[in-house]
Amino acid sequence: MSALLEISGLVAAYGGVRALDGLDLRVEEGEFVVLLGPNGSGKTTTMKTVSGLLKPVSGRVRFAGSDLAGVAGWKRPALGLCQVPEGRQIFPDHTVIENLHLGAFPVRRDRSAAERRRAEVLDIFPRLAERASQLAGTLSGGEAQMLAIARALMAGPRLLMLDEPSLGLAPLKVAELFGYLKRLHEEHGLAVLLVEQQAGTALKLADRGYVLERGRVAVEGTGAELRDDPRVQAAYLGKLRQSTA
């Protein structure tokens, strides 16, 4: 059986500098996969290439059995492939509800489907229901991140990709965020591909993980295997034990 997301031999570059150098990676249906690695290792570039924001030099990206070559980035959410970008990138001058409606673009012609998804999303994030008419730019950092995730969920993804969702959040908000991700994965069966610096917390949730280095996979394994791998501890995770003690 083919993976939900399958990346093979992927090469991507900025100018003449390679950011991905023959990357191979898989995410199975309903699986939680974490991407780790130092800055410049290719994590964000992987996300951008899969979501169609960056055209690869060579290699292949397949989603749900179909090759994504030639599929424009704006069409990919309708296939079930959605990304929550680093920095959230919500629309600050629009209300919470307006932001959610923008996320429902793939089902814009089916009003009942959009309304049904909105109800489901607000059930997951009740605080957003309380802020429904509030301008997104006035939300707290944690609430803004909830909105960014909720907006992506409006498209009905099969795979949710998140790039550094905990960036800039206080520790209590990070714990709350990962609680939502756990619920989406375990209760809703959503496949997740997560780029995250909070390695200890991320690996507790992960079915599997990859550590990237110079645009390639340096180490891969289950979440538990990566947590206990001395190479990962020494080279990539640094203060993992202290941060999760």
Rank of each mutant, 00 (worst) to 15 (best):
M1L: 05
S2R: 09
L4N: 06
L5F: 02
S8N: 13
G9T: 05
A12D: 05
L20K: 00
D21E: 12
L23E: 03
D24N: 13
D24Y: 12
L25G: 09
V27C: 14
E28M: 07
G30T: 06
E31M: 11
V33L: 09
T45F: 01
T45I: 08
T46D: 09
T49D: 05
G52H: 04
V57E: 10
L68I: 03
G70S: 04
G73M: 00
L79I: 14
C82R: 10
C82M: 09
Q83T: 13
V84L: 13
G87M: 02
Q89E: 14
L102P: 12
G103M: 11
F105R: 12
R108N: 05
A113K: 13
A114R: 06
E120L: 14
L122F: 10
F125D: 01
E130Y: 02
Q134N: 07
L139M: 03
L139W: 08
G141E: 06
G141T: 02
G141Y: 09
E143N: 03
A144I: 05
A148F: 02
A152R: 03
L153C: 08
M154I: 04
L159R: 15
S166E: 02
G168L: 00
L172G: 00
K173Q: 12
A175D: 12
Y180E: 08
K182A: 13
L184H: 03
E186R: 10
H188I: 00
L190D: 01
A191R: 13
V192N: 04
L194W: 01
E196D: 14
G200S: 04
A206L: 11
G209H: 06
L212Q: 08
E213T: 05
R214C: 13
A218F: 04
V219P: 08
E220R: 07
G221H: 03
T222F: 02
G223I: 07
L226T: 13
P230I: 03
V232W: 01
A234Y: 08
S243H: 07
